[in-house]
Amino acid sequence: MNRFLTAAVAATAGVAMAGEAAATEWNVSLWGKRRAFTEHVEKLAELVAEKTGGEFTLNISYGGLSKNKENLDGISIGAFEMAQFCAGYHRDKNPSITVLELPFLGVNTLDEEVAVANAVYAHPAVQADLARWNAKLLMTSPMPQYNIVGTGEPRDELAEFKDMRVRATGGIGKAFSAVGAVPTSVTATEAYNAMESGVVDTVAFAQHAHLAFGTINRADWWTANLNPGTVNCPVVVNTDAYEALSDAERAALDSSVEEAIDHYLTNYGALLEKWDSVLAEKGVEKITISDDQLAEFHKVAADPIRAQWIEDMTAQGLPAQELYDLVQKTLSDHRSGS
């Protein structure tokens, strides 16, 4: 090859490399499979690519980049640019957002879940907490109140929860522990096998997860109104990667969050509407807990666990009472429309 041809080839390659460099690709670490819980991330990827003409893409991986309990660690070292995780998987790494996992917090709808999460995520102490992991909170993954599926005879009284082995994490696990149950924090992807092998008797999940991870297929019954709380699962981005985006890319990402959440809420709402038909199809009995039993559960679990959380988090230097009060004020404001 003569030197002129060599120079031409090199120049062409340089243009190609420059073109490739102009495109931005982010790797996104999720787990399990595509489901209602991940629809906002899928929608976000679609919107970002659309707004940037394909110059900014999110490559979503379901378990191929990291284990779910290690996603925050992966974000901290820049192993990938975006990830979803649940606070209850590693409470010591993200203590501030565990306020959203306190049992019987009073959140009733997915819209309320979004409102309180957004308020907490915006608090400076929470942002500083996640910044220790080089993580920037992007959006929440709103879920309805958890309920349990179980095998054998239904358990509809608190006395029957004693020694019950339940898959439950975070504040929900603490709530069950308060009434004598034995919580275990196996991951969502391990829950079916734990139920099948008898490691647990019951599993606490939101509806989508009972479907996605197959626990509903082993269930004889489901509690319709236990509602002990839910878990908080943020989507975060690596701070360095976020700051390295161009202004246009950052605008495309930030401006897509609200629409992605709206899509998630619509999709999840459709799932909830068909839940009763799912139970009937699978022969799962719907169990209703009496008001007296629910009141007792609240008394035993809600106040003591909240008080202990505030004491423990305050000792760690967090404005715990302020964060709890922020949740309650946000709920009040949201309901009044202010």
Rank of each mutant, 00 (worst) to 15 (best):
Val9Pro: 00
Val126Lys: 02
His208Ala: 11
Gln127Phe: 01
Ala175Arg: 08
Val235Met: 13
Ile289Gln: 04
Ile287Met: 07
Leu100Tyr: 07
Thr24Ile: 03
Asp247Trp: 03
Val120Gly: 11
Ile287Asn: 08
Asp303Cys: 02
Gly152Trp: 07
Ala248Arg: 13
His90Gly: 04
Asn118Met: 09
Lys329Leu: 13
Arg34Gly: 11
Leu265Arg: 05
Asp201Gly: 09
Thr184Val: 15
Ser61Met: 05
Phe213Thr: 04
Met195Thr: 02
Ala209Trp: 04
Glu296His: 07
Ala87Met: 10
Val41Cys: 03
Thr239Trp: 00
Ser256Met: 09
Asn59Pro: 00
Leu265Glu: 07
Asn267Asp: 13
Thr52Lys: 01
Ala260Pro: 13
Asp247Pro: 00
Asn2Tyr: 06
Gln207Pro: 01
Lys329Arg: 15
Val48Glu: 01
Lys67Gln: 14
Ala295Val: 07
Gly64Gln: 11
Leu130Met: 15
Glu285Arg: 15
Ser177Arg: 14
Leu318Ile: 06
Ala10Asn: 01
Asp303Gln: 13
Leu253Ser: 09
Thr98Val: 09
Gly171His: 11
Leu137Arg: 08
His90Thr: 12
Arg34Ala: 15
Gln145His: 04
Tyr268Trp: 12
Ala168Val: 09
His208Met: 07
Gly64Tyr: 09
Asp325Lys: 04
Glu55Val: 03
Gly150Ala: 04
Trp309Phe: 13
Leu279Arg: 08
Leu323Asp: 10
Thr202Phe: 00
Thr109Ala: 08
Ser277Trp: 10
Leu102Lys: 08
Ser332Ile: 03
His123Ile: 08
Leu72Cys: 10
Pro183Cys: 11
Leu253His: 09
Ser256Val: 07
Trp275Lys: 04
Val48Thr: 12
Ala11His: 03
Trp309Thr: 06
Leu58Asp: 01
Ile216Lys: 06
Thr189Ser: 13
Lys162Pro: 02
His334Leu: 03
Asn27Lys: 10
Leu158Cys: 00
Val28Asn: 04
Thr6Lys: 14
Glu46Tyr: 09
Ser141Ile: 09
Glu113Trp: 08
Thr6Arg: 15
Ile148Cys: 00
Asp240Gln: 14
Val231Asp: 05
Val116Thr: 05
Phe37Tyr: 13
Leu47Ile: 15
Gly317Val: 05
Ala315Thr: 10
Ile216His: 09
Pro103Ser: 02
Gly14Asn: 03
Gly171Phe: 07
Val41Thr: 13
Ala11Gln: 08
Ser336Cys: 04
Trp221Glu: 03
Glu113Asp: 14
Val116His: 05
Ser66Gln: 12
Ser336Asn: 11
Arg155Glu: 01
Val126Asn: 00
Leu110Glu: 08
Leu331Phe: 12
Ala131Lys: 14
Ser336Glu: 11
Ser255Met: 06
Val120Met: 09
Thr109Asp: 11
Ala191Trp: 03
Ala83Gly: 06
Val28Thr: 11
Glu190Cys: 03
Lys51Cys: 01
